[in-house]
Structure formats: C-alpha cells, structure tokens
Design a protein around this nucleic acid. Sequence first.
DNA 1: CTGTTAGCGCGTTCAA
DNA 2: TTGAACGCGCTAACAG
Lengths: 365, 365
Amino acid sequence: MISEVRRPARLSDVAELAGVSEATASRVLNGSVGRQVKESNRRRVLAAAEKLGYTTNVAAQAIARGQNRGVTLLTRGVPDDYANPIVSGVVAAAERRGQIITMISAGSKADDLLRAVQTARANRPQVLIIAGGRREGDRTIPALVEALQLYELEGGRVVLISQSGLPFDTVAYENHDGAADMATTLVDLGYQRFAVLAGFPDGLTQQARRDGFLDGLASRGITVPPDLVITSEFSRDAAYAMTGELIRRGVSLDVIFAVNDAMALGALAFLRDAGPRAAGVAVAGFDDIRALRDISPSLTTVHLPWNEVAEQAIDLALDEERTGPRTRLVAGHVVVRESTPPRTESAVNGRPAEPVGASDRTSNL
Amino acid sequence: MISEVRRPARLSDVAELAGVSEATASRVLNGSVGRQVKESNRRRVLAAAEKLGYTTNVAAQAIARGQNRGVTLLTRGVPDDYANPIVSGVVAAAERRGQIITMISAGSKADDLLRAVQTARANRPQVLIIAGGRREGDRTIPALVEALQLYELEGGRVVLISQSGLPFDTVAYENHDGAADMATTLVDLGYQRFAVLAGFPDGLTQQARRDGFLDGLASRGITVPPDLVITSEFSRDAAYAMTGELIRRGVSLDVIFAVNDAMALGALAFLRDAGPRAAGVAVAGFDDIRALRDISPSLTTVHLPWNEVAEQAIDLALDEERTGPRTRLVAGHVVVRESTPPRTESAVNGRPAEPVGASDRTSNL
DNA sequence: CTGTTAGCGCGTTCAA
DNA sequence: TTGAACGCGCTAACAG
C-alpha cells in the first residue's frame, strides 16, 4: 500500500514547472511585501504550486530568515479534566487575529518547564507565551530566566501569564486582593469559622490567594487556626480527600475556601457524598471556570475575566513597539452564588439558610 | 532596556569554543546513534554549549535531515469549556513515551481544517494526528484526503481519531452500537417516550449516535416521532435551548438522549431550572467526560475509554513497521447513573423513582 | 574517533 | 520586473 517515498515538492520544482526562477516563485508564494511580479507569472507560479501540492517548508524558511514567525504557547502540566481557561482563551484570541498558535505542554515536574522552554526555543518562534504559576524556591527559576533572557536577546519575545515578578512582559491577576474580597464577603454573609484548602505551600499563586484570604479575615478580626489551613495537591481529588479529613476530625466549621475552583468542587463533592453529618458547611472557590457553571449548588467564587487575560497576553505578544518589560494587572471580582447562602445569627451551628436561587447564574462570565 | 539583538549561538560557535569540528559538536549534541566521541571532547563540547546557551536550531536540523522529528496534533475548533478528552489523552500518552507533541487548533469553519493541515504539513512533522469528526458532504474532504495522501507519500504518517472511512490509520469508537446499547438499556429501565438531541445533521459522529439510538429503540419496537429528533449545534447552550422548546411545546416525554455529554448537561440544566413543570424527565448522554462526574444527578452515559483511544493513536503513530492503513475500533459501554432512575410502570406519567444513589460514581473512568 | 565536504530548501541581496 | 549567487545552521558521507 505504501508506495515509494517521494520527495516533497520544493520551491525549485514549482519554479521550474512555471518556467520562472526560484526567486520569482519565492516572491509570489511567500513574498513579504508589495508584489512586484508580473500578473501572468504570478498565475503560472500559483498554478504550478497547486498542481505539485507545494507547501512552504517553514524550516527552510525559518533558517533563511533567521526566525520563525508564529507564537508558541507553553502550558504547565498535562491538560486536566477541566478546560484550562488560559489555554482556550489564548487560542481563541490568537485565532481572532488570524494567528495560529502552537502549543507545547510541559510536564509538571520541576525541570520539565526548563526543558520545554528549550524545546520551544529550538523552534525559534517570534513569541513565547508561558502560562502557569511558578513555585517558591524553584531551583530551576534562575536557569529559566537566563534561558528566556537569552531568547529575548536573540530577538524573541516572552510573555508570562500568571503572577508578576520576573523581568518579562506579564499578565497577572489579583490573587491576593480577590481572595481578600472573598474573605470579607463571606464574613458579611455571616460566616465565622473558616478552613482553607491552600494547595501546595510553595505555589506562588496559591500562596497569594491563601494569604489574601487570611489577610481579609484578619481585617475583620478573624484568624484561622493553622491546622485549618490545609496543604495538598491542588486538584479536585486532593480537595475531596482533605475535606473528608476535616469532617472526620469533627472540626466545627462554617465554610471552606479553596484556592481554586477544582478544589472547591472536590470539597463540594465530599460534602454532598457525606450527607447530613457535613450539612451546613459552605464552600467558596477561585477562578470561576465555565465547566462548573452547572454544578449544584452553584459555586461562589472569584471571577477572573479569562478572555481579557488572554487578550492582554496576545496584545503584549504582538505589540511591535515594546521598550521594556510591562505588566498588565487584571482584576477579578467576587460572585456570590448558592454554595455560600447568607448565614443568619440564628443559623449558626445549624443548617444553612435557603439557597439564594440561581438568579445570578447568567452573570457567570 | 532592550539591548542589541544578538545572534543565537550556533553549532559552529560551540565547536570553536570547544576546539573541535562542527561535526564532532553535532555528534555529541544531537547525535542520533551510538556516541563515538572521546569523553574529553564530549565534555568540552557540553561545557561550551552550556556556556553559550546553545539550543539546537530544529529548523536547520529538519532541513538537513529532510524531516522533522515529532508528532503534531491537530484539533478541531477552539477548546471549549469542557476539556477535550482526546487532546488531554494524547498529550499524556505522548508524554509517557517521552514525546513532546505540538498542537495546532484549527478553526471550526469548513476549510479551516484544510488550512491547518497545510500549516502542519509546512512543519514537516513525522506524524500528524487529527482529532475530531468530519461532516457529511464536506466539500473540503477530497482536498484534505489529497493533501494527506501527498503528505504520506512524502514520508509522513497520518492518524485519524474519530470515525473510520478514510484511507489512513484510524482510531474509531463505537458510536452506533454504543448508542444502540443505550437505547435498549433505557427501554429496560422502563422508559418509553424518547426525544433525541441530535446535534448537527451532517456530523458523522452525531449521525452514527443518533441512528444507533433510533435503531436500538426500533429493535424494541419503539419509534421516535421525527419532530422529537432535534437538530442543533452540539453545545451545552444549544441543548439547553432545545430542551426548553421541547418542554414549552408540552411534549410528553420520559427521557432525553443527547448525542454527547455537553448537550446532556445542557438538557439537565434546563430541566433543573425549569423546576416542577419539567419534573420526571430523565437524561442520558454520550462520552462520559470526567469534568461532569460531580454533576448532580450524575449522568447516565456511554463511557468511552479515552485513555485507550489516545494510547492506540500514539501506538499507530509511532509504529515503524506499518504496511497499510489500519483501523482500531474502541468499544464503549453504557453506565447507568442517577439521571435515568429505573422507571416502574406505576411511575409512568409521574415523578421518577428515587435516584439509585451514588454507588457507581467511583466507577466513572 | 575526527575533520572535510557537500548539500538540505528557501530568502535575499545585487545586477541586469 | 527578473534571475544568479550566496548564505542561513545543521547533518551525512566519506576520508583520514
């Protein structure tokens, strides 16, 4: 079935068939600026290319030009069960501008990111967008920064999406303040006894959200016992397990704040499965990911405008006249839904008040 | 802030600094087979590369070798709110084998796929995996097949994930039979009056599932009125709207079968929002995507082993000794959960029986 | 084990 | 408006 392997059509094949020089063929097929090719030749070249099934060899192009066009998006970790709003946002935003983006998914181990950056750099893309937070004390950060700086020195452009602090264009969002707002909002709703599912202790994003939440509570004179600020992997399943432990320990609790929605979902799932003995515990999250909009009870969370985050990133990436590292800070806001019903004085220690209803569901994003 | 643009370090720079020839440097840095380089030289080259921040220029490599290593995954449409199990599966499977895969997301318009294939082909990857179904009567299919055949002629490898029928390696799953099983399962549970949210009429996957379901019902002597086989976009929101129309029309209904889980979710959401007037309508889906495992009621659906689908695809992709197009058929199976409680005779026309409980939730994938 | 040589396919001068 | 010639960074074949 497999016939002889044939060589892909080259530019010279096209040129020959069209009866023009390679240079001319190049001008019509991949010409950068104003076409200075006679119309008749132009057509002959196009026809020849079509006939031969010619496709530009971007590798050769890249090598001749010294750089690849295009933007590469680097993600951390294998895509999980819930769509990564950053990834989908960036892809969509790029598509809106006629850009096709290439994605590379780095593993989640410490030096995987560094390796992925090398892989990406090997492709010499114009822009490298890196999505995802980093960890405190990550030994590979210096090497990473060095590699990226080298890359910029070589004419590449780096855009980071997550928290700021590195000397590159960055789109950051308000992790600390969003979480603080969530804290005061919950206090205003009548909650008094808190637990925090804090994710990994060294994740900068999680840290900021955890600290923001605790700071917000502190501003209302509330402190959370250290043993109720719980460390774990930041996944739905880990949160499910951690919530289980909390309940089994018999901790007296009004509400659990999880540093992201996936974890909040895990908490919610455990509470539901646990039935009566866990009744009356509310849950709040962070991110407002779309996949969770049909969860019942609907999730109180900090909404982040992912589309705007993505737009800003592409903006930074495609902006030609850059003079130095810029940071764009994107704000979030608390959205109160059913998972944290208002808690009246009388309801303390008892069941939660009635759900507030799904009225705000459409405001979700 | 931006200093002079510097040229990336080349192999020759490394060679010079190490005091060896380019060939030797090449052998230690990118050498394919058994290293035949003296240890001392080897170390010097490595040190020089490190010092210069050298990264292989894959473009140059590709051009010198005539082909790029690596596999490219082509997806249809911008990633949506629910993680695409094919994409995450393939990425994870590739990672397990130490392969980094490059993703390109094609737009959802008719000729976007063709354009994306050209883009991918321009990169001359070894393997091209294309995920996603095609449409009946798609005018671009012949051109697509031609482009892909050319690509294979040129030494590339194509793997399709979805339904079979095209002359390339394919991983397909049992859309028709899975849906038929679902139909008979629902009949056995006591359901009698059906509606089908069928997605686009020209989507081959949706077609197969719709027809499979109707065939399954027919085998039990049940037919569905044509106006209850509903055509729409295959999204959660479209399904939400279509379900609304169904209910407003006052159709008498036991159960809605949606050709995928996202649509089933939309149906479920409408029924929940509609309250009492829609009580007693059950819902079943197809795909068993993980993101929905915490939905309540849990969703009866046709489970597809996505990890196996992905593994098979990577298998086909990486298998050297191929002689001709092969098809791997992956089976699914019905998983009954809470969204379709058993319906006793007496319950017909009334409320559904009690949910069966969450006992099978852990069996989800 | 190592260096020399000759391309790979394309963009881009520079003349014509 | 066109073509000839050169070079991009790297690998492969061959000779040493």
